[in-house]
Structures are given as C-alpha cells and as structure tokens.
Simulated assay, not measured.
Amino acid sequence: MTERKTSPDDTPPDSLPAQRAGIQSVEVGFSLLQVLGASPGPLMLRDLASAAGMSAAKAHRYLVSFQRLELVTQDAGTTRYDLGPAALKLGLASLSRLDSVKLARQRLAPLMEQIGETLALAVWGNQGPTIVHWEESPQAVTVNLRLGDVMPLLSSATGLCFSAFMAQPPGKLGSNNSHHLHERLPPMLKAELAHLQKLARKDVPKTMADVTAVLDEVRRRGMARVVDTLLPGVAGFCAPVFDADGHLALGIVALGSLATFDPDWDGAVARPLAQAARQLSSDLGYAAP
C-alpha cells in the first residue's frame, strides 16, 4: 500500500491550536489590501510594502496574484497600485447587506413616487462617501454617476452631508468639534480644497474658513444641498440617517434637473426627504437630541 504524503495543510484536527487553523500566506497578503484600503490614494510599491511590514520583492509577488484576481490594479504611467474592480464589487456587496441600507432600500420606491425624482443611497467607504444604491425616476436626468462612485466632499450634496455630520454629532452645534472629526476627514477636506483652489472654481468654498461656514449651514439646515454645482443644470439634496449610537449610517440623496426639481429648503423634495431620513433614523434606534 502506498503511503500518503502529508503537507503543511494536512495537520490533524487533534493537533490544531484552540484558534482555528488557516492559511498564513492569505493573512499576510491581505495586509497589502488593508493598507490600500486605508490609504487616501494609490501607493508606490516601496511605500505599500513598507506599510504592510514586508519587503518589496515579497509584496510584489502577492500583488501579481492580486492583479490577476482584479483585487488590485497598477497604473501603467505612475506604476502605483490601488484597489481593483473585484475589491470594489466585494465592498459594495458587503455595504449593500448592512441592515440600514436594506431598510433604506425598501423605502426608496414609495419616496420616489412621492417626490418624483431620482434617489440614491450613500455610505462612507474606504475613499469617502460612496453610492451603493440607485433608484432612477422615470423623468431621470442623465448623469454620469454609477454604483461605487465616490462623491466629492465639497461640491456634492452627498459629500457636504457626510463632511458635516461626521465632523460634528447632532446636538452639538456651535461647539468646538475638532476632536469629533473622523480621523481621515480633515486631510481629505484639505486635499480636495487645494485641488479646487487650483481650478479656481467660484461655486465652492475657497478657504477652510469657508468650508467651516458651509458645514455649519448644513448642520443648521439638517441636510445638504447643491444647485448647479456638481453637474450643470442639476440640483440635489442629501439627508443624513443616524444609527442607534448617533453615528452617521448613510445619506439619502435626491437629485434632478432644475427644470423639474424643487430646490427650496421647504419644498416638495426637501420636506419628504427630510421626513424619510428622520423616520429611518428613528427606526434604527436613533433618539434625536
């Protein structure tokens, strides 16, 4: 009888430690994905490897496999690495299964019938506020937005909503909120502001003082609005939804053409949108201050 050869993966159950056995190489390689997920942008090989605590040669071998699986992409021009389409699909699948997103999706159809405009759901992802669901109105305006798109923080209603309500919890208006800021939010705001300053745009905040004033206004209104800013001829609102701990769970977005969309703060879009967000927050266990 031929003796069966064993491999490191054939460890008998009796010899396994209390913690269930796994494949160490998978865990090691995943550290590269974690670093990319936490990074504000693409990384050079040396920086990615250093942050993951491994040599560049070792990191490169993992990255070759991750590229084949489309978990990672490499820019041919800059040679920098970033998360790939497969990572995006996995992230969107995970985000869409959150209870808050499930509950919100059930309420979009009747809300859209009430206001007659396109609706979307956004959550905070690795790179910022991310569109995870889209409910298109029959009179939808053509927009170049897709599931998985990350919205700009200072020129979209979604970005302004997340910037305002992640920076300062509800019920603390006017307080010094620097210690409440999401750890990644301040550098992201500064980077986007610097980019907008280079473009010399006149329809967005120009200084950090302007940013503070705009976000204070968003908190005072209880939702964010942009008109003819993110896209020409398009207006949008984003209303925050909070969980039982008072954290921003998601944003409900409404947008449409200025030819039909009511941009008034107390208009036919803003009022039912705000009410839907308040009701969903309450159903998630949030008690307004």
Rank of each mutant, 00 (worst) to 15 (best):
L90Y: 03
V64T: 13
D99W: 13
K89L: 07
I131P: 05
G128E: 11
S100V: 02
N126G: 03
Q24G: 14
S100A: 04
D75Y: 05
T158W: 06
G148E: 06
G29N: 06
T158R: 06
L45R: 02
N126P: 00
V150F: 12
P42K: 01
D99R: 15
L154T: 10
V143S: 08
L45H: 07
S137H: 03
G125V: 08
D99F: 10
T118K: 00
L43I: 04
P110L: 04
S155C: 14
R97I: 09
S25Q: 14
L45G: 01
V64E: 13
V28A: 13
L33G: 01
L95E: 12
A109P: 08
S155A: 09
G77L: 11
D75P: 07
P40V: 14
S137V: 10
L121T: 12
E135A: 09
P42H: 07
L92H: 09
K102P: 09
Q114G: 01
L63W: 05
L153W: 12
T73V: 08
Q106Y: 00
V123C: 07
A120T: 06
A57R: 15
L154F: 11
L33F: 09
Y62N: 02
M54S: 01
P42G: 05
S94A: 11
Y81R: 00
L95G: 00
R107S: 06
V141T: 00
M151P: 05
P138G: 06
R61Q: 14
A86V: 09
M151Y: 07
M54H: 14
N126E: 15
V35D: 00
N126D: 14
E70A: 15
L147T: 07
T158A: 10
Q106M: 02
A38C: 15
Q74S: 05
E70Y: 05
L88V: 01
A140N: 15
N144K: 06
A51D: 04
K89T: 05
L95D: 02
L83W: 02
G53I: 00
T118R: 02
V26Q: 15
D75F: 02
V123Y: 07
L98D: 12
G128D: 14
E70K: 13
P129M: 02
V28N: 04
S31K: 14
